[in-house]
Design a protein around this nucleic acid. Structure first.
Lengths: 130, 130
DNA sequence: AGTACAATGATACAATTATACAATCGTACA
DNA sequence: TGTACGATTGTATAATTGTATCATTGTACT
């Protein structure tokens, strides 16, 4: 991986790891689909605890840059910044909805019930009540 | 089999497989007596280890929904257990809906728009070609 | 000193994979 | 028939991977 850290900089290790990996993606040293080292492997290489690496990976995961999967490993995502346009989102949403409605109808649910349940779920979500 | 997984959802693969198969039974896409794909075949299709599929099958087996037999294969049982098909359909429908809404919200759609589009689609279906 | 908080480490855990195994089926051949 | 053997099926167990939780350390601020 060849990833250099500065233990004396005062910048937290996990943030340094996040930045180094972002750089490597930006300049193409690692690419979408590539597997990153396991948290333990990279931790050993960097002489840190693997939880520190895990923390960096989690941040990158939440940023949508990588995908970490328990038991499998972590991978660079295809779309680094999935900034989809409004039109794209709309199209995706409509396809998603049609597929969902087809499934629901196939289950034999009457349209009123489908609508009712969705309304209920959306309301409870809005109020944060479960 | 046409069974979609989300590796980034955080929901374990084996549970996703369990749910997808329950859905297919509930809505009739697969029926009592049908043979499910072998653990290896389905695993290859899903790009997953076959033990992960085996785990899902074992759960369905213990729930009395399918029957897995070493050396023979796995089959949908005649009676979709005591959990009557009505309750099962309802459960399946609600899980399906929650999954759909999570996707839609993640796309950034406001609840009103989700509801509006669904209402529109249901109406056009009612009046459209049947 | 004492306290609070962030960073890191230690430990136990859960999901997935790798490998070896056992049961069944299918086919060939005696 | 029947039996031997390879292919195919599910099973069992351990190794590998990320996750969750709490303990420890260090630093800043009273």
């Amino acid at each position: 991986m060849n990833l250099e850290l500065d233990f004396r900089s005062g910048i937290p290790i996990y943030l340094q790891v996040v930045d180094r990996i972002k750089e490597m993606i930006a300049d193409g040293r690692i690419r979408p689909g590539d597997q990153l080292p396991t948290v333990r492997a990279l931790a050993t290489e960097l002489r840190v605890n693997f939880n520190t690496v895990a923390r960096a990976y989690r941040i990158l995961d939440e940023a949508g840059i990588i995908s970490t999967q328990q038991g499998r490993g972590t991978y660079i995502l295809e779309m680094p910044p999935p900034e989809t346009s409004e039109a794209m989102r709309r199209t995706t949403f409509e396809a998603l909805t049609d597929r969902y409605l087809a499934d629901a109808v196939r289950l034999g649910l009457p349209p009123e019930e489908i609508l009712a349940f969705i309304r209920q779920q959306l309301n409870s979500k809005k109020q944060g009540v479960e």
